[in-house]
Design a protein around this nucleic acid. Structure first.
Lengths: 279, 279
DNA sequence: CAAATAGTGTCTCTTAGACAATATCTC
DNA sequence: GAGATATTGTCTAAGAGACACTATTTG
């Protein structure tokens, strides 16, 4: 059935006459938050910007979306161009930032992606294109004060320099209001710190339940390695025996061992539908 | 400290020369998924489109973001214009859809928001602007087949017409692949069904844990009302005594009663930091 | 053998879930 | 009093968490 609109047009006629340039449009960009576990700590890949705005500041890899390019294609392309990383174990959309004045060039709406990968896949990281450098920064979020209606944390990125923010998260009626305050001399470009904070929260709350954690580990791993990764992500210390018991039920033993003081069984994660989250 | 870029420009000079119109840009739109509990069922607010594309199809309320308008402002404005709803208890960003060919007019990137409100606040719903009508549709997602690697569900919207999809969710390595197949004669506009499916999944998985459920209820409510709302959202039946015990610990009794067969205590929800999720 | 790492056992307390029973109101 | 709704109680089995212990290898 073919409907006509109020001007009596068919869809074909409507589209033929459609003027796409009537209004001023925003730019669309993508940003990538790529995490890995290195030296037993959670690390985030940042680039040092080569050009204005935020020249010489550390920032998330990312850039403009081409007109005929999907968002997820764009974010992988930008990651490749700026950091030489072309393969990650996992990625998914995180959040879209779109405040009117967030970019001094012009209105820019940025969709951020969260990506996870074991360090093995990420050997040859190097800056390129708009990135003067690419480097790993250790990420730490520590709660310094908490009651039932608010939480104050310190979010620290340690690498070539140290970038540190105080994050305040307050419950107001049904919402959480977040604000951040710079504590260090160096700072992240734009509003990227919001994304880092969001990513950590999501990573923590879904590390085990959705199996996100296992994307930070190689194909096979020992139970100790899972625990180390979990402690790095969560910022907590856990009881080894209890942690083991909690986790083995979701793993399969490979029958192979990793040598060391005492040889340790290697396991593999079996993703099950039940465990994956709804996003 | 003032840095110069490779052309020797200061930031001011760079911005003054910055050409914002070099590349073709996408449109940015917003869509709203507003849920409520009505007649003991979960319902979603849809509008019937007045113009091409998808003329006369049911769709999520939404539309173009103005150049100088924040995304959240835009989505609330569009909701008001198209459905006359100007106040909801809760809303937050859900997902950004940006596939190149998702809109026949031109490239359109759409950021969707999830909103919840008790029915009391939503009395005078009516279509306006680009919406010929606005109406509530009962939402139901039922799993019809499930194993450890895949789940097939039926997602049904019942209102002025019945719209029904089969949703297949498969675990592939670390990802969930979702696909949908139309089962009914009527269908939703664009790719809106993806958002409905996502919203339901998120609503279900966070109903209790993040207290989302209580945004669907009035300020004070009986335990039975919470249970009914929970059952509507989750699609499950729960044991009344057990459900009560699980939930009362997060509520405060008001000391007031709702009359009925037997008078029932009215409770209030106390949002605590602990319970709110990281997004 | 000492030190380090891997792994098991056990006890307690809380919670989830199934189900029985009681209480209070309306018709 | 019948029937509907609200609320309390009880039992069991599984899980979370604390902590003591054994096992295997390296230096």
């Amino acid at each position: 059935m073919e409907f006509l609109n109020e001007k009596g047009q068919t869809e074909q006629q409507f589209l033929a006459e459609y003027d796409d340039s009537m209004y001023r449009k925003a730019n669309n960009t993508v940003d990538m938050l790529l995490f890995t576990i290195k030296d037993g700590t959670l690390q985030l890949l940042l680039i040092k910007r080569r050009n204005h705005p935020w020249i010489n500041r550390w920032a998330l890899p990312g850039g403009f979306v081409n007109y005929d390019e999907d968002l997820d294609t764009a974010v992988l392309r930008e990651l490749r161009e700026e950091t030489n990383v072309s393969d990650t174990a996992y990625f998914r959309q995180l959040y879209t930032l779109g405040k009117v004045d967030r970019d001094p060039r012009s209105r820019t709406i940025s969709t951020a992606y969260l990506s996870l990968s074991p360090q093995e896949n990420l050997k040859d990281v190097r800056g390129g294109d708009d990135a003067r450098q690419a480097a790993w920064f250790q990420v730490e979020k520590k709660t310094v004060e908490q009651d039932e209606s608010q939480r104050i944390s310190k979010l620290t990125l340690k690498g070539e320099c140290e970038i540190c923010y105080e994050i305040t998260e307050k419950v107001k009626a049904n919402y959480i209001c977040r604000s951040s305050r710079l504590l260090s001399e160096d700072e992240l470009a734009a509003d990227h710190i919001k994304l880092v904070n969001m990513a950590i929260d999501q990573l923590r709350s879904n590390a085990i339940s959705s199996g996100l954690l296992f994307n930070l580990l190689p194909e096979t791993f020992t139970l100790k390695e899972v625990q180390t990764a979990y402690e790095a992500v969560s910022g907590l210390k856990v009881d080894t025996p209890n942690f083991r018991r909690g986790i083995v039920s979701r793993l399969t033993a490979t029958g192979q061992y990793r040598q060391g003081r005492k040889a340790a069984m290697l396991y593999r994660f079996n993703p099950l539908y039940e465990n994956m989250e709804g996003n």
